[in-house]
Design a binder for these strands. Structure first.
Lengths: 221, 221
DNA sequence: TGGCGATGTTGCGCCTGTCAACATATCGAT
DNA sequence: ATCGATATGTTGACAGGCGCAACATCGCCA
């Protein structure tokens, strides 16, 4: 899931960088992780890559454009993660569940990317600034959701309906609403996701699966 | 739900403004709506209020502090909306549902506030920077969620589990994932919320409540 | 070889956040 | 009422960022 986007040979000491665009994106990821989105500047990216402050403008029209590219990169990763997670399953419900788990894990693994991906201004009505990678990730989800519904009903509504839970869960976990210890170990994380993504209407006592909370407490950290 | 925070008498032409803090918050809301969060500057707020560029620093330690205050204000409104929505109901499930609907409506009514409220950097582990209003809103939800569970299980986990759906739905609606026409009329919005917040695991054919998607198609816009 | 477009550099104007020093209004104690 | 203390607002300055324009250098292709 972690593809740092710098495949070509690293050649330095040259007037032309070789693949400045990718290098800038990589630098942006690092700086994003270090200082957060507010502390990220184009000039810092340039400095980190060892290039002049105006060089980025040959590859990105503006700072916002670089952020958008970063978000797009994130959508690409998310798409890949979703495909990989769903691949082993054939049952529509299982596939959707797998997507949901992968979704939350992706958000926790790439928090800054995730925030960026959904930090678009709410002004524009168009979904996610018509980014291609974003659209792919969305279509993947929508199809999976529609499949569960047997193709009946509005796909967009189904997508939003299914998507809202993992999306909200991811957001809330990122906001620190669950003690970090619970998200540390892979096992513990799985249990939290399962508990939060499972039925939220408590089944009549005794009929449901394991009690989420008590089950989550029984892991060995 | 719409309390613009400027109750005291408006007196201008004076060296001292009277209630600059509230005025700055109001201005920030307007600018936020006009130019989005990226285009908001402290100096613009000051200009709009008709005050010098450094005046805000007598009331807010930094730009970030003003944003935080704005978020806190939003949490206050959300809390009020939640209380008002739940008041008419006594059944725990109905109360939680009412909260969910109010939550989504709040997000659509105050999109910039809502974004701000959950745009905290993911660095700090503490929930929402230990804001008091945020905590109140959270406790309100957690208690409601715990009540549905009959007080058993981990309240935090229950809260996150219940919260994720309306939260995710709000985020996705703000991102334009549903055609705006569907959110225009109050009736249509209610149906979308209901459809998205209802059961997402399609019960075995025939056993569940109304088919969410098809039900949503039968509205008259 | 020579020219052209892509890429990178330097320098600049404007804006912003933030601080320090100063000015003015408000309020409490005398 | 007066006078200082405190809160509030102003001016001016500095560092730093964004983005443009003019210039430099490289790679490519006729």
């Amino acid at each position: 899931m972690n593809l740092p986007t710098s495949p070509p040979p690293e050649k330095t000491d040259r007037y032309h960088h070789g693949d400045l665009r990718a290098a800038l994106l990589d630098a942006a990821v690092v700086l994003l992780a270090e200082r957060g989105i507010a502390g990220l500047s184009l000039r810092d990216c340039a400095r980190r890559v060892g290039v002049s402050h105006a060089a980025p403008y040959r590859h990105f029209a503006s700072k916002e454009a670089l952020l958008a590219a970063l978000a797009s990169q994130g959508f690409g990763w998310l798409y890949a993660a979703g495909v990989a997670a769903m691949a082993p399953h054939t049952d529509p419900v299982a596939r959707l569940d797998a997507y949901g788990h992968a979704y939350v894990r992706f958000a926790l693994a790439h928090p800054h990317h995730f925030r960026l991906m959904f930090a678009s201004e709410c002004d524009r009505g168009a979904p996610a600034a018509s980014d291609k990678a974003a659209e792919s990730a969305y279509v993947l989800l929508r199809d999976a959701a529609a499949a569960v519904n047997g193709g009946r009903g509005d796909p967009d509504l189904a997508a939003v309906s299914y998507w809202s839970r993992p999306h909200g869960l991811a957001m809330l976990l990122l906001d620190g609403r669950i003690a970090p210890e619970r998200l540390g170990s892979d096992q513990a994380l799985t249990q939290v996701i399962q508990a939060a993504l499972g039925d939220d209407r408590p089944a009549p006592p005794g009929t449901g699966p394991d009690e989420p909370a008590s089950a989550a407490q029984s892991y060995d950290g």
